[in-house]
Design a protein around this nucleic acid. Structure first.
Lengths: 209, 209
DNA sequence: AGATCATCTTGACAACGTTCAGATGGGTCC
DNA sequence: GGACCCATCTGAACGTTGTCAAGATGATCT
């Protein structure tokens, strides 16, 4: 009477508490900000006792890691969409940046968790660069297809970092400064984002010089 | 028997508790990170009861505001030094960026508080731009002296934002990713910073095009 | 000297993260 | 089917935190 095809290690009493906890956490984070997300509130939201989460996460920070993971997956989706929507390589670089910032604007609290939760690990979040399908790699590849020299390891890495930093900086800025006046004057959010990113060499014209 | 020349509202029992609290808070933040700084620990460090701070700050977040204020003053010092140390206007722009990132590397926890504490105010920290001697204005002025057209309000603001964002992004990055290999390869931290910022148009060559 | 008022303490409250001993109930083996 | 096992969840507890109300303290002003 059991579907033995179940792909993941079977859930027990609750159904799939781990998943329910992560979803509740994401909901709370996006609703009231990362600071307002307490472990007890998550448990409450999921309808279990305050100690229940400890059978699925060793820590509060481990739950936040899972929330962050959720965020990186959403971001990667946005990255792929942006890359496929634009065929001109130089524009692709810029549109990748725009997609990044738009994501941060759409999910500000989630975005903050993505970085905050790995703040004390003295490293960028693992999902950014540590595998073949990473977001970091995606930027690098688009830079190459836009004319960067793949043999120049150092130059390529510097350019990738510059891209990431500029987008990251703008994303951070827009989480506490709306720039409404400027957006209005330029005719929309996208125009504003392209305007700022246009001042960044790599975004403006790929790598040709 | 009182020096009536005392410039500020006189301190009472403690001497100058408000000042002592801010200093203790800065010490704790820089030592153990912003998360480890509890109001009670600050009071303990200053040798007063847990409720004492409430006569000088309405909130924990108001104490953090004071800590942040301290940070912005230190940053402004670094900005002025960087501006005065470099006479070539285009280089000045870049060196302002380098100074910004170096400050964040030197005071990572303080740097984080500077932004975190005004995270929910839907605005950049007031000390950044809201007065004549602001850091934001300082960047703007250096851009003008580097050739930007003061009449082009929008373009100037976009360029200032781009500068700030690139530096802010790089600063944030270096708080959880050391880039040690790259620094070594390029011959030092400054070379690395200039390398990344060199990819940003405004930093690389002022505004001439 | 007596009144005033900012300052600091004491004691309390709810909420939090975390732990631990025990209840529960599905899965496995005889 | 019955006995066991073990992952899962609960209940109660501990120490810590932010915050508040009521009272003690002592400098200042008239």
């Amino acid at each position: 009477m059991k579907e033995s095809e179940a792909p993941d290690p079977r859930p027990y009493h609750h159904g799939d508490l781990r998943r329910a906890l992560v979803e509740a956490a994401v909901r709370l984070v996006e609703a009231d900000g990362p600071g307002a997300m307490s472990l007890r509130a998550v448990a409450r939201e999921a309808g279990v006792s305050p100690a229940a989460p400890y059978h699925h996460f060793k820590d509060k920070s481990e739950l936040l890691d899972a929330v962050a993971h959720e965020g990186w997956e959403k971001l990667d989706l946005a990255f792929r969409a942006a890359r496929d929507a634009e065929t001109s390589p130089p524009n692709r670089v810029r549109e990748l940046g725009v997609a990044y910032v738009r994501f941060a604007i759409a999910h500000p609290a989630l975005y903050r968790v993505m970085y905050d939760c790995s703040r004390d690990k003295a490293d960028m979040p693992a999902h950014v660069h540590e595998n073949e399908e990473s977001a970091y790699r995606r930027v690098r590849d688009v830079l190459i297809s836009a004319g960067a020299d793949p043999a120049d390891e150092v130059g390529l890495e510097l350019a990738t970092i510059a891209c990431w930093c500029a987008a990251h900086g703008l994303a951070e800025m827009t989480t506490f400064k709306q720039f409404d006046a400027l957006k209005a004057e330029l005719g929309g959010e996208d125009a504003f984002l392209r305007g700022v990113l246009g001042h960044v060499g790599v975004f403006a014209k790929g790598l040709q010089r």
